[in-house]
Amino acid sequence: MFFRLSLGLLPALFLSGVIGVAVPFNSHCYADESLVLGALYNSSGTQAGLDIPSSQGARLAVEQANRNGGVLGRPVVLEIRDGQSKAEVVKVKTSELLDATPEPVALFGLSDTDLVLAAAPLAARSKRVFLTSGATSPQLPAQVPEYLFLACFGDNVQASAAAEWAHKDRSARSALVLFDSSQTYTRLLQGYFQARFKQLGGEVVAQRSFTSTDLKQSLDDLPDADVVFLAAESPHDIRTAISMIRDAGLTCPIIGGDSFDSEGLWNKSSDVDEVYFTTHAYLGEDNQNPRVIAFRRQYVEAYPDSVPDAFAALGYDAARLLMESIERAKSADPEEVRRALADIRQFDGVTGTMSYPKGSRIPSKSVSLIGVSGGKLHLVAEILPKRVPPH
């Protein structure tokens, strides 16, 4: 019989950097039959706004699996480590997970490309899958061959969706591109947007790079354009940049990527309008998708003080993908699980129906475009881009 971890204890346990979920005893005294999944999420630092919801989604998936008899009739133990949003810490915590007894069947988590590149090579060296729930660089699988998979779309897909929507639906023919040059995610995202927008016949009138430390100086004296593409990562930078764009007199649409889908970013932004962003799923109360309705209800029941976002759904889907792969492999052997994951087709996730095309470790799935009006979010469109720039 499994115990239900008291949700009131979760914040303290998570901040300590170690937490075991859905096990019948102390997390370091496993029964021989337990299946261990290792996860890396950041409960502190710049990535906390994305990773805490994602880790909660993962916990929910494992708790549900255990209430239904586990996987292959065995209880699932979820071991989470806090990477503190620092690559050097992520490396240490990844090694801790891989050196534990019993060894994890697979590892997953993280929402940042650079942090994934700190963790995934270590997993591959131990011949373990690393499934990133939220890091969207389409270059990642080539950087860590065979063992690194995405549970999310690639940046070239979401950037193309943004460019096609701006060009077709908003008749944008000129774009101003602003991006954080210190992050791999933002550099790649803006590059893919520019490539697709130009393919469509659009003109990039200017591009400005910035970092968190020189944001205000870098975004001074902005030229006019039909649309602004803003590739920023931290909530603080996103809020500051949007305010500066509006203060400069630009009233055109501002479009961003999935980093805009951060819990708490918009709930105090009643003056924000004409802001849009691409993300993995729309989880608003008005979404009538049965899978979204069920997930939203279950998540709120488990975490009454939280509202689920796309990253919560990504963590949930990533944990379920790995458990589904173990079921399909009929084995907890890491190599069998890797092969089963690569063969996943038509997996019904909260963030969409996913399939890994033959030879690819990035799933094919659509992009949700969300609008922000008066601080409220609404679904604008579901987009499957017609053309995507190469990796």
Rank of each mutant, 00 (worst) to 15 (best):
A248K: 04
A123S: 09
P385S: 11
K168W: 06
A61E: 00
L5S: 12
G109R: 12
Q190D: 00
P24E: 12
A166K: 07
V300K: 08
A172W: 07
N26A: 11
A161Q: 03
T351K: 00
A381Q: 12
A294D: 14
F277P: 04
R246Y: 07
N287M: 03
P145D: 02
V227K: 11
C252F: 01
L140D: 02
G17H: 03
F149Y: 12
D226C: 07
Y185I: 05
I370Q: 04
A135L: 04
A65I: 01
E327C: 01
F179G: 04
R59G: 03
P53F: 03
A294R: 14
V227Y: 02
V272A: 13
L230N: 10
Q207S: 15
G371L: 05
V21Q: 04
A161T: 01
L117H: 07
E233R: 10
D261H: 03
P390W: 09
Q194N: 00
Q194G: 04
A302L: 06
E285S: 10
N267R: 14
P385G: 12
V105D: 05
L97D: 15
L222K: 10
N42I: 04
D155N: 15
L5D: 05
A100S: 15
T186W: 00
V372P: 03
K168R: 15
L9W: 00
P121H: 00
T351W: 02
G359A: 03
S174H: 11
S16K: 10
R387L: 08
T186F: 00
E336D: 13
A151R: 07
S85I: 05
D286L: 13
A151I: 11
G45T: 09
L188F: 04
L107G: 14
P363S: 02
E88Y: 08
P363R: 01
G38W: 07
S243V: 00
Y276A: 05
E79A: 13
Y276N: 06
S126W: 02
A39N: 08
V350T: 00
R246A: 08
V205D: 11
I344L: 06
Y30Q: 14
S55M: 14
S6L: 05
V36R: 15
G20W: 07
L219A: 13
T240I: 13
Y303S: 03
N66G: 05
Q64N: 12
P145K: 06
F3K: 09
I242T: 13
V23M: 09
T213P: 04
Q183D: 05
K365V: 12
Q158C: 07
A162D: 14
S182E: 10
S306E: 10
S331N: 14
F311A: 07
L107Q: 13
Y299M: 03
L13V: 11
A58Y: 00
L341H: 09
T46L: 11
R387E: 10
L7G: 12
I383L: 13
L78M: 05
V116W: 11
R59K: 00
L219R: 04
A172Q: 03
A100N: 14
S182K: 01
D317A: 01
V76H: 12
R239P: 01
K365H: 06
L322H: 01
G8C: 01
D99M: 14
F210D: 10
S366Y: 04
A151N: 14
L72K: 06
I80E: 11
I254L: 10
D247P: 00
S325G: 09
F277E: 01
K365D: 09
Q194D: 02
